[in-house]
Nucleic acid binder design. Structure first.
Length: 108
DNA sequence: CGGCTGACTGCGA
DNA sequence: TTCGCAGCCAGCC
């Protein structure tokens, strides 16, 4: 681990893959775990590529407001929410109940 | 090789 | 939590 390869996406892959079922996290939290504290955007872009990769529960990643900002990239805007609800994640209207399901990824 | 865009965040009000 | 401003880095054209 801690391989500084250009495969930055690969790191996000590992972290997202480590997200427990029924839990959600933010881009910043992931970025922080990767050492990219100020570059949460990169996490989002990484996810954009990871969503193209099967086996990556990127639907467990939301923005700091708890909104499913990446749902549009799922092909089906509602798919992201459906997946979370299927895992037991509670929703507050259009947002995820961060207070209840927020999970902090740890540094590899 | 240069510039723009982008699944965002943090701070202050 | 919401609104506004500015920063950060990598991928893509």
């Amino acid at each position: 681990m801690a391989k500084l390869d250009t495969d930055f996406f690969h790191r996000v892959y590992g972290v997202v893959m480590s997200i427990p079922e029924g839990c959600v996290t933010t881009y910043g939290a992931i970025g922080q775990a990767l050492g990219l504290q100020r570059s949460a955007r990169m996490v989002g872009h990484a996810l954009a590529s990871l969503v193209d990769d099967p086996g990556v529960p990127c639907h467990r990643v939301v923005n700091h407001a708890g909104m499913l900002s990446g749902a549009v990239h799922f092909g089906t805007p509602t798919l992201m929410r459906e997946l979370l609800e299927a895992e037991g994640v509670r929703f507050k209207g259009e947002r995820v109940d961060m207070k209840r399901h927020f999970w902090q990824p740890e540094v590899e």
